[in-house]
Design a protein around this nucleic acid. Sequence first.
DNA 1: TGAGGGATTGAACGTTCGTCCAGTTCTTCG
DNA 2: CGAAGAACTGGACGAACGTTCAATCCCTCA
Lengths: 191, 191
Amino acid sequence: METSAPGKDRQERILDAVVELLSHGGISSVSMRAVAREAGVSLGLVNYHYADKASLIAAALRRVEEQDLAIVAPDPDLSPEERLRAALARVAAPEYLTTEYLSLRLQLWSLAQAHEDFEQINTEAQKRYRAGLAALIRAARPELSRGECARRAADIDVVQNGLWLTALLGLDRASVKRSVVRCEEIALRDD
Amino acid sequence: METSAPGKDRQERILDAVVELLSHGGISSVSMRAVAREAGVSLGLVNYHYADKASLIAAALRRVEEQDLAIVAPDPDLSPEERLRAALARVAAPEYLTTEYLSLRLQLWSLAQAHEDFEQINTEAQKRYRAGLAALIRAARPELSRGECARRAADIDVVQNGLWLTALLGLDRASVKRSVVRCEEIALRDD
DNA sequence: TGAGGGATTGAACGTTCGTCCAGTTCTTCG
DNA sequence: CGAAGAACTGGACGAACGTTCAATCCCTCA
């Protein structure tokens, strides 16, 4: 039969548990035992699949970062400019603007500061995100130089990060919307 | 003689230690023992001055937030518009753009997510910061309504938070500078 | 000078942590 | 079926944790 690999489901549930705990109580609430409990799995199994706590968390972070890249994934049904607008609007989509997701991002950044391994994971993910964004801009505005696209992508990244952070600290839908518009202006303005 | 109160110095050093540990290793590296060691003080004294770990950290957070308000403190030597520009430029001043300070801010936000007491401290500080910013804008642009000033202050807060976050994750002085300019545009534009 | 009280110490307690491991169950395949 | 190996369990270990507390230090003032 073509079922999923035997240990795969449990591994996924373990990573889910890490993410769940991380986003709700911060790194302090992520212990091997809490993860096992949350995943409905024995303590030993967590250590069986992941060598130690650091690599467990690293695996969870990598999975989260992977999902994040979906934001700048080009939508094939749209024109280049619409594709860009869709990507820029996506950061304010309900699925990303939840407390749970935003809090997770914050914990992720926080971890990147405290641990070198996590910092590397985060840095690489951010680089890929910006590259995806720059590519979208370049497709929508072919006349712009590669450097200018990278510059605009960096500026948008600043506003988006601020948008997420501010949404998390005290959700203000109006200012979120204005920030999305600001990102569009940065990406598409002519000069 | 007019020296400082006896226990005051040690209390300050204890809070310094919390901030130091927090910004360098995150909340995970803040233990009562580590704080005592860093402050050059016995373990018992930390618990003597602060009822428990939570109130110790809360005290440290309150002190940091207090310092943050200095950013929007009006500079009496300048005209209203210059005063505003000075405040907006201050977020990119060398004293605030250090890894240590930025990392501290991040940990602070992260703590606000995980603990309700810390969230309240953070929320109130942010409110006061925005109010200070709005007041600066209103002084520089008296023709603007109170609501419009608050709106602009909120938008600037978004960009500034993003600026700090991005500076921390991967310092890019050029995009930092562009973001400061963007904040000035938001604050001062006519329309 | 000496009594009183705040400041300070380090040992001790019980809990929880990450890690390890001997043992058991499950799955696969000759 | 039965051997083999992967998946999985839970108890045990030492270390580190937050908290408590009796004891000591140090300053002040009567």
